[in-house]
Nucleic acid binder design. Structure first.
Lengths: 164, 164
DNA sequence: CTGTATCCTTAAAGATACTG
DNA sequence: CAGTATCTTTAAGGATACAG
């Protein structure tokens, strides 16, 4: 992105994730890989992406350890690593949001287990069960720096002051 | 993004979601909103984003129904709508991935319920319990067009032919 | 404080041609 | 088929100044 800020500096795991997979094509490539695409040309056909862009993205994904290249040098296979497959819950959650709000509840693609049983809507849970989105809170974690701590403190204080 | 493809055309809910919230700043703004940020200036301070960019994003988010503007015209509040809060599972899943792979398991921010109980790692489940990422499959859904169907069929056939 | 209006820079995206 | 090498376009991001 033009003249941009380095999101990975932001002391925020979401920002760091987006700095790695947050651009327009990367998650779609990962999605295709999940579905079973492995060849350069198949990614290209599936996405309608320019070859140079695709080549760059695949290199980045391999460098990031999200995908791995194997097979013949002339006609390699690109496959997800464990780290790449770990993106699945996030990807499916994004898909489900799109199913609901951007595809009018008519999913172009449905997600199932090996027996065809549908994957349930992704929810947030604690050790007792689902947690509603209104009940979710954020707090400083072990990786928080002073700025992040101050920021969260300030917010908490502001809420105390009855901001509504 | 420069000279770009319209992802929303892709007959894919993930692409459509990314077309709405898939740029570098939008999800971070949503995250801040989740945490409790509501003021223009607070978003700006938190993210270090330029004012014009922030203004554009907030407009887009409001237009998309993800955030809503309220309060005095001179000093409005920006808050998530139901549609916006529905992004939480996806956001948390992305954060968790970053916690693990981009923050060395030292989360800058932790997510809890109202009692401080931690939110568990987001997983994929069917009606019986967790589904491992290797056991996830994709199939054409009610919103699939001919191209998507053909694509998924072709992949399935290719796998039959013993690709791996 | 919350924007809007300009201007500028830059690099991402795409098209095309070429190579092994 | 799987790239690499260029070239061009273009619009996103950012800085600044200004306004209500």
């Amino acid at each position: 992105m033009p003249g941009k800020t380095d999101l990975s500096e932001l002391n925020c795991s979401l920002a760091r994730t987006l700095a790695i997979v947050g651009d327009w094509w990367t998650l779609l490539i990962v999605r295709d890989a999940c579905i079973g695409v492995r060849r350069f040309g198949d990614f290209q056909d599936s996405l309608g992406i320019a070859k140079n862009i695709l080549a760059t993205r695949l290199q980045q994904l391999c460098a990031a350890g999200i995908m791995a290249r194997s097979g013949p040098e002339r006609r390699p296979l690109y496959q997800l690593t464990e780290k790449g497959r770990a993106l699945l819950p996030a990807m499916v959650a994004l898909m489900q949001w799109g199913d609901r709000f951007a595809s009018a509840n008519k999913p172009p693609v449905i997600v199932t287990d090996t027996s065809g049983r549908p994957i349930a809507p992704v929810t947030l849970r604690n050790n007792r069960g689902d947690v509603a989105s209104e009940d979710v809170r954020f707090a400083a974690g072990p990786g928080a720096n002073a700025r992040t701590r101050a920021f969260l403190d300030a917010l908490r204080t502001a809420e105390m002051k009855r901001d509504v």
